Amino acid sequence: MAITLSKIAALCLAIVYTSISVFMAGFFAIPGMMTLLVPPLGLIWFAQDLSEFTGYVGKGGTIDQSSPEFLIAAFGWLVLLGLPIYMYYSS
C-alpha cells in the first residue's frame, strides 16, 4: 500500500473535521466523528484491497469481477466531502 497525496489529504481533512467538532461541541464529539469518518477513510485508504474482492456476498449474490480502484476511492471522497453538507442541512 503506497501512501499517496490523496490518502494524506483525506487524513488531513478528517483531522480538520474532528478539530472543528471538538471546538464546537467538546471532546464528547470525537467518538461520533470517528464513527462518521472511518468508513470513507477506509474506502480511500484501502481502495486497492477492496477492489480485488470477489466471491459470495450473501443471499445468493456473488461478485464475479473486480471493481475499479478509482471508483471505490471516489465514493470515499464523495462521502468525505459530502459529510459537512449533510451535517449542515441535518441540524
Rank of each mutant, 00 (worst) to 15 (best):
P39A: 06
D64E: 11
P68T: 01
S67Y: 07
P31I: 00
I63H: 01
M33N: 14
F70T: 12
Y88P: 02
K59C: 03
S66Y: 04
S21I: 00
G55M: 08
F70L: 10
L80E: 04
T54I: 14
L36V: 06
G58Y: 05
K7W: 09
V22N: 11
P40Q: 02
I44P: 10
T4W: 07
D49T: 06
Y86H: 02
Q65T: 09
F46P: 05
K59N: 09
T35R: 03
A2R: 14
W77N: 03
I3M: 15
I3R: 12
G82T: 03
D64V: 05
I20F: 10
M1G: 15
E69H: 05
L78N: 05
G32P: 02
F53S: 04
F23I: 10
Y88R: 13
F27T: 14
G32C: 00
A2W: 06
T35W: 02
M1F: 10
G82C: 01
S67G: 00
V38W: 06
T54N: 01
L43Y: 04
L78R: 04
F27W: 15
A74S: 14
T62F: 11
M1K: 06
M33Y: 01
P31F: 02
D64H: 07
V57M: 13
Y17F: 13
V22S: 10
